[in-house]
Design a protein around this nucleic acid. Structure first.
Lengths: 219, 219
DNA sequence: ATGCTAGCGGAGCGCTCCGCTCCGGTCCAG
DNA sequence: CTGGACCGGAGCGGAGCGCTCCGCTAGCAT
């Protein structure tokens, strides 16, 4: 989402230890970018290249591709949770809290992880995080509903899925893609605001959301 | 989008000629389904299997994967164009025409083709169809704008991109996915309706939309 | 200065999986 | 009954992936 940090190589200053640490951060950033652009099928070599790092260094930090992706997911979920709590604490009314939450989670890349659903087994930590996330989103929704600014029938699963559809890869520059995502987020949020008509079809339940990550038995 | 027609094999009745024709239709349906679900990377063998047809028959109709996909794109574009003209002709007011157009193009699978942008060179026919499509959408928008029901700043490119983001693969049954698509289409349309706030960021121009299909020089 | 070695980049191994071909069998037409 | 059009699907060639391994470099201790 932010600048790639594509240094030609990581030789800025500081000794080997420092380089290692710098690599660690750069790798995570690069991985997020590349996975967002190319999906779970992104080759590890592309991530290494983008980070300006060799395959050796990449695999020293993360023993496998799966481990890297899992780490990325966890980080994104933590980010989303924090965005929710921040919005809840700092915004004066329910609607602006919801707006801010959606905007910030989008920029921090939440919802992009839904593309990986089913690609690897979920960890316990991820389950815990998702539960806390669900609670926070529910609080956001409750507050907006209490002040009457939310369309009836909107559920937390809607927020998740909306974040996910906004992750569509528009085939432009990353900057323009972000602009467009914000544009359609604005449209969606206005559509989520209170007014007469009910929404067609029942909203996605939380179990429905969770099931996509591959329950016990799945294809 | 509709039933798979997954006959165990294609031996219903009628001689070899009839079987060939049946295969042809079945293959196209299967291909549409599979490409929508799996994207351009869908293996040809899966399409053959879904159609209940051998690889041989598949490749007798379409000399290559690219040819199949191109045919599919053309068909989808024709469908979209027809949906627009139908909506324009049959609906009493601009807004219901726009709504109907979006709903029908979604169900007929338009916008799913944007996922293939850049994967193969566009034909002249496709260019012509896209121009006619753009005109029809513009007419739809003009009519809605004239009656004052359209939010200012909405452009035809928005319609294309909205159709495209709604093609997100929700990881459920095809039926439920269609329900959800309709749900978020409703949200989006309500957000596109007239009211005060302008939309952030300029809408996608038509050139911007076209460029994604890989102009002359592109990566 | 000068080894020693931790950490680096990247070539390449092994494997999976895909597009496409080809051929033995099937079944309709005459 | 026989010819041949058309069928299904096994298998070929090759692309591209995850991951390992190794020669080299550059910082540290002496």
């Amino acid at each position: 989402m932010s600048a790639p940090e594509t240094l030609p190589a990581a030789h800025a200053q500081g000794g080997r230890k420092a380089e290692a640490e710098r690599n660690d951060r750069t790798v995570l950033n690069a991985a997020r970018e590349v996975f967002f652009e190319l999906g779970y099928d992104a080759p590890m070599s592309v991530i290494a290249e983008r980070a300006g790092v060799g395959m050796g260094s990449l695999y020293r930090r993360y023993r496998s591709k799966e481990e890297l992706v899992r780490r990325l997911c966890t980080v994104a979920m933590e980010g989303t949770l924090q965005a929710a709590e921040r919005a809840l604490a700092a915004e004066p009314d329910g609607w602006s809290a919801l707006t801010r939450f959606m905007r910030e989670s989008l920029t921090c890349g939440a919802g992009a992880m839904g593309r990986f659903a089913g690609a690897f087994p979920v960890t316990e930590e991820m389950v815990r995080l998702s539960e806390r996330g669900a609670d926070a989103m529910q609080a956001l929704l409750d507050r907006a509903a209490a002040e009457g600014s939310l369309r009836p029938g909107v559920v937390t699963g809607d927020l998740v899925l909306i974040l996910e559809i906004l992750r569509t890869r528009f085939k432009t520059t990353p900057e323009r893609a972000d602009e467009l995502r914000l544009r359609y987020l604005a449209v969606l949020l206005d559509g989520l605001r209170h007014h007469g008509d009910p929404l067609p079809a029942p909203g996605p339940t939380w179990t429905e959301i969770g099931e996509r990550w591959g329950p016990p038995g799945d294809a």
